[in-house]
Design a protein around this nucleic acid. Sequence first.
DNA 1: TATCTGAATAGTGTATACAATGATTGAAAT
DNA 2: ATTTCAATCATTGTATACACTATTCAGATA
Lengths: 246, 246
Amino acid sequence: MTEQDSAPKQQTAKALTGLRDLVLKGEVLPGERLSEVALADRLKVSRTPLRAALQKLEQEGLVVMIPSGGYAVRSFSRQDVIDAIELRGVLEGTAARLAAERGVPPVKLKAISDVVASLDAVVAPGPGAMDFGLYEMLNERFHRQLATLSGSDVLSREIERITSLPFASPNAFVNTEADVPAFQRTLVVAQTQHRAIIAAIELREGARAEALAREHARLARQNLDFVTEEQPDLRSKVLALALMSG
Amino acid sequence: MTEQDSAPKQQTAKALTGLRDLVLKGEVLPGERLSEVALADRLKVSRTPLRAALQKLEQEGLVVMIPSGGYAVRSFSRQDVIDAIELRGVLEGTAARLAAERGVPPVKLKAISDVVASLDAVVAPGPGAMDFGLYEMLNERFHRQLATLSGSDVLSREIERITSLPFASPNAFVNTEADVPAFQRTLVVAQTQHRAIIAAIELREGARAEALAREHARLARQNLDFVTEEQPDLRSKVLALALMSG
DNA sequence: TATCTGAATAGTGTATACAATGATTGAAAT
DNA sequence: ATTTCAATCATTGTATACACTATTCAGATA
């Protein structure tokens, strides 16, 4: 069972999504103190569910507590972003390894293979333009299913957590790639890795599955390097990087 | 800087420690619904800080949300415990690898080497009985410093999280070992691994450092197996296992 | 006896009021 | 002009009251 994000109640949910939007859209700057009353007023909720949402966002890592009290938007260094991506690779690698070592029921293997097949159709060069929205959806599904293949709730939870950081999400840089033709080819590479990971799991090759999943995450690292160093004007398109200060 | 656990305020702190004690002491059974009013009354705090504490405990993984509302004590399967230990090994392994790959400032290396040296003195067979309290303190310090050696706040945070699960703590099974002489020797093995991990980091041998740290965590796994399979009467001594249902 | 219905009840989610603590601004003195 | 002290102000932490929902228990009916 995939972690259902422990269904928040109405007002708390509204505060949560509203707050997330505010920080991701950059409408509140990193380091800035988050005034509870102002936010509660702006989001049309009471302070109680707002504080609950803030606490949840602290758990997600988007905000941090101020020693004197209250919360502030967390600012991420470039190194933080790199580490988060690396950590996702490590965790997904562990999921792949455990899946290979422990074995997975055929029905689950079939399910994720179907997702890979669907991704093939999207990535394959066809007449029209590539459907990036569809790619994102299938890609997220692949990574979510990979996490569950381990059969470990503890691990799945942790992957869910680290993935909730916008720049550590598997789709973090897919949006960017729509504009740069060279990037589209990285999706082909990514898809090759998807296939290889599943194959390794099927063959019970734990070490290989782990290494592949780690390398797969480093694709995101590459894209990060490209955006920040070679084509900084693209950075505004990757709204996941709104929180990065470097 | 070590994550200061984002200092809770007075009442919330009281509720937090009180609640943790209650679930660890087994005074509230796994699966049982946690009545907020009853707990607030029992812990002499209002419902507001109590709810804050409950949310923090959900983040730590000790309680889970009930779909209909409220919280329940989480029950851990034997597999959950195994996975949590494995995950600690993976994360500490990553910390060791990153420390080796990226290099660590000499002052930090000196600090953790001093801890290892102190541990040597404790483990070394002397005239009197071994000081397990001191061992626990130094052991915790070693693992905490290892986490920071990576230089990655993101990773340190995650290690802090998984380590907060009582049975995934580096000291989870040290208490038990006081009574069983055979266990005392495992501490010697553990200490050897401590040394080897630091040596590997110093030599910039990332892969070795990672493998060693992983194996080091599996010592806990061994102890778990021993307690549950060979000497179940010891289980009551390991209060970290109060939450395990198997 | 088993099941369905309904009301009583226990319990959470939310709003708001109050208290306590930290920040800020202004004035006064050196 | 700068620094220090004090007082006001803003903001959070906590308590409590209210409303709404789910759960449970009793009673009636099949």
